[in-house]
Design a binder for these strands. Structure first.
Length: 354
DNA sequence: AAGACGTGGTA
DNA sequence: TTACCAAGTCT
């Protein structure tokens, strides 16, 4: 039977047809007929965790230019990788990226394993990323479930529970749409649909290949799905950041390898995971000096708390750096790779251009 | 298992 | 301006 307007009888077929006609040309994405590069797929997938395509593009290009191969990345010093990652956030990803590169070189001769279960064992590779690499890079029949897929499937079936509570159901419903011979394209099709059509607010149902099958649309309640988790209050914390200058140098500290900004360069500060509001901020200074507080504090919002940090500045001469600290040339501050909060402080203090 | 873990964009 | 949320992982 001939369907009018190219409409397909099966949602899975409609989805893949839509993708074939509408796929975006992304830097890490193989063109039709080309085979995917596992290194490119892995690198992009790590960067894309909780991060938008638009933000990733610049970092991806920078990484690929500097480290064109897995071997090159594995051979790089970790601090260079962290410095290049600066500003992208979730810095455990950068540490795991580097560890993973070395593991694949050491344990697999520089070739990523193709099986989902083996990929899952690599650092920084969880259930989603393992499935995504297996499907996209190796066309293995793995089903990657990310936030896009959760939203599309939750709407398609009007699933009345937060995704976290019904993960297996969502995976099963997603798998039911799959085109097994085209595992990579299928996974990307479902995510792409969520990213450009079945968006969180005001989805473009008129352009959606799954609209005829969509339960949420049938009940005109697209934005009711996926059901949101109860949101927790975001505490407001206060703290201080200390910028010590010595001629053309600035004092930097290397943070311990776990926790907030783990492994990154930073200015000395109060412990940011605690509220220092009621305490004597200068008691946290890296050394005694004539500290001067800048008028306007730096505001920064993290996932789980908001911070207002007073920036203190002082000058010193010929002082040996305190433990875990070193002097860095102010002109090279941009190359040091500071997390965004610290970069904001540097801008506020006039050390670097905005 | 629920919270830690960044940042930027949109409405 | 607050709220949401983006190709999640780790503990």
């Amino acid at each position: 039977m001939i369907k009018p307007r190219g409409e397909s009888a099966k949602p899975g077929a409609a989805l893949i047809a839509w993708y074939d006609a509408n796929r975006r040309d992304l830097p890490w994405r193989a063109r039709p007929g080309e085979s995917a590069d596992p290194y490119a797929v892995w690198l992009s997938e790590i960067m894309l965790q909780q991060t938008t395509v638009a933000t990733v593009k610049g970092y991806y290009a920078k990484f690929l230019a500097r480290w064109p191969s897995l071997e090159a990345l594995a051979a790089a010093p970790q601090d260079e990788v962290l410095a290049q990652w600066a500003g992208l956030g979730y810095y455990a990803r950068a540490r795991n990226l580097h560890t993973c590169a070395r593991a694949v070189v050491a344990d697999f001769g520089g070739r990523f394993p193709r099986e989902e279960e083996a990929l899952r064992l690599l650092p920084g590779v969880g259930p989603y990323t393992a499935a995504a690499i297996a499907a996209i890079a190796f066309n293995e029949p793995a089903v990657a479930v990310d936030g896009n897929v959760e939203r599309v499937v939750a709407r398609l079936h009007a699933i009345d529970a937060p995704p976290r509570a019904v993960k297996p159901l969502i995976r099963e419903k997603a798998a039911a749409l799959a085109t097994p011979s085209r595992a990579g394209d299928f996974v990307q099709a479902l995510m792409e649909l969520g990213a450009v059509i079945c968006v969180p607010r005001a989805p473009d149902c008129a352009a959606c290949p799954l609209a005829p099958f969509c339960a949420a649309r049938r009940e005109s309640a697209q934005e009711k799905y996926p059901v949101r988790e109860a949101k927790r209050a975001k505490p407001q914390r206060r703290g201080a950041i200390f910028i010590l200058r010595r001629g053309d140098d600035v004092l930097l500290r290397r943070l311990p390898p776990r926790g907030l900004f783990g492994g990154m360069n930073a200015f000395p500060s109060t412990p940011l995971t605690e509220d220092a509001g009621a305490k004597d901020l200068l008691g946290f200074a890296p050394c005694p000096a004539r500290w001067r507080a800048l008028e306007e504090p730096v505001a920064h919002v993290f996932t789980h708390f908001a911070l207002e940090a007073t920036v203190f500045v002082a000058q010193t001469r010929a002082k040996a750096p305190p433990p875990d600290c070193r002097w860095a040339a102010r002109r090279d501050l941009d190359k040091e790779g500071l997390p965004t909060l610290m970069r904001k402080a540097a801008i506020r203090a006039g050390l670097v251009e905005a």
